[in-house]
Design a protein around this nucleic acid. Structure first.
Lengths: 223, 223
DNA sequence: CCTCACAAAACTGTCAACACTTCGAGCTCT
DNA sequence: AGAGCTCGAAGTGTTGACAGTTTTGTGAGG
């Protein structure tokens, strides 16, 4: 049970949040809580309870909830309250298709626009095996020099990916297969071969999708 | 006792809006107003003024503004208010790159997943010349059978496209060039050729991007 | 004439209180 | 006992008011 020691006052202060306004702080804390899995998927959100928990009034909380609604992290229906979005295998598959398209384009642009320093950093990331997958993909997105693409990949899609995988951004060792695929992508970027970079990235995402779908199917078979 | 309710007030009623809550109605009206260009890009939003205009209190209005912020239709900074986002040539170029990736993927999926009826509808759209471009692209997105892709293309990206082009979803005659490109895309889908469908769609988007960038550059040269 | 300081107006952020809806416990009737 | 109704409790939607900040307008001084 994740219940705190103190019974009556679960009031959590918000000192570490960067946002100036309470609504922003609550938004940051709430999105992090949802993505970290602290709030169960599909669970109903009680505005008074959450407001007490975070030590704010319902006004800022509702503003944060509306932002989360637009980010599709919660669903809201009038007079029926808000619920944490529940990940589904279908949504996961859809997400990977979108990622394949966007990250493929990012790799294509990176092959053209990346600086020598950035390519060196990518090469270093691949050569040392202990890095996490996200760092690699984020770095390539940055190399695309396309802020909208970067925002989609590193913001919205990455959030949904965290939610669907149900893991707290873990640095788990990636497979040998992924290691090889990463190396091929970097090689293509080093060669400034845009077509090949896109193709390798798309194969990499498709491969990751199949692995993850298999793992998810096995999890659901157990449950 | 200066009641200005009925005389010359700018108070706009919200009868036609579908949403049950005031916040939703204001959200719909505001996003439509921004996308239609009724609110000047870059203009500052005064919460009291807008609240009076729409005949609601500041609470629901602020909730709608937070949703618009997450949709990137407005920008907000603490204690400094909200501003309508200002389109830039750079953002337009970025948008077309993202569209090229996503619509290419949609065409690929459509070649695989579209039903015979849907393909017939696409063929009809191409054969009759008077259709507008958006209808064609939306239909292909629907054929992808990927709700997340459909939501991105028909929702967020389409909104930004409307905003950046500054036109009210006009049914303007498309060029002969676009007509030919549409026909090639539909032919590839009819042949169930996923690779070709994606390539033709990406060329079509890239061609549209170059035409629009040229038009925008000319406009800015005049001004 | 320009600049700076200062006060007032306006605005944003926040809160507590008020309507209306929804849900559930308990009662009634068959 | 079980189905349906009633009424109270809880929750959501909305409002107006209050506190702190930013901006504006004004006047003195250089």
């Amino acid at each position: 049970m994740n219940e705190r020691d103190c019974q009556h006052s679960d009031e959590l202060d918000l000192p570490a949040s960067n946002g100036g306004t309470l609504a922003e702080q609550v938004y940051d804390r709430l999105s992090e809580a949802i993505l970290a899995g602290e709030l169960a998927p599909g669970a109903k959100i009680s505005e008074p309870a959450l407001a007490r928990q975070y030590g704010v009034s319902r006004g800022p909380l509702r503003e944060a909830l509306h932002r989360l609604q637009e980010r599709k992290l919660i669903t809201r229906s009038a007079n029926h309250g808000a619920r944490i979005v529940k990940p589904s295998p279908e949504a996961l598959a859809e997400l990977f298709v979108v990622r394949e398209a966007l990250e493929g384009m990012a790799a294509r642009l990176a092959a053209t626009n990346a600086t020598a320093d950035e390519i060196a950093r990518l090469r270093a990331l691949v050569d040392q095996n202990a890095i996490d997958d996200q760092d690699f993909h984020f770095t390539i997105a940055q190399c695309s020099r396309n802020p909208m693409l970067i925002g989609l990949l590193c913001g919205e899609l990455y959030s949904l990916l965290r939610l669907y995988r149900g893991l707290p951004l873990g640095v788990r060792p990636r497979s040998q297969r992924a290691q090889i695929e990463h190396e091929r992508i970097v090689s293509a970027i080093e060669d400034r071969d845009a077509d090949l970079a896109e193709m390798q990235m798309r194969r990499h995402i498709a491969s990751a999708r199949m692995r993850r779908e298999a793992a998810l199917a096995k999890d659901q078979a157990q449950a």
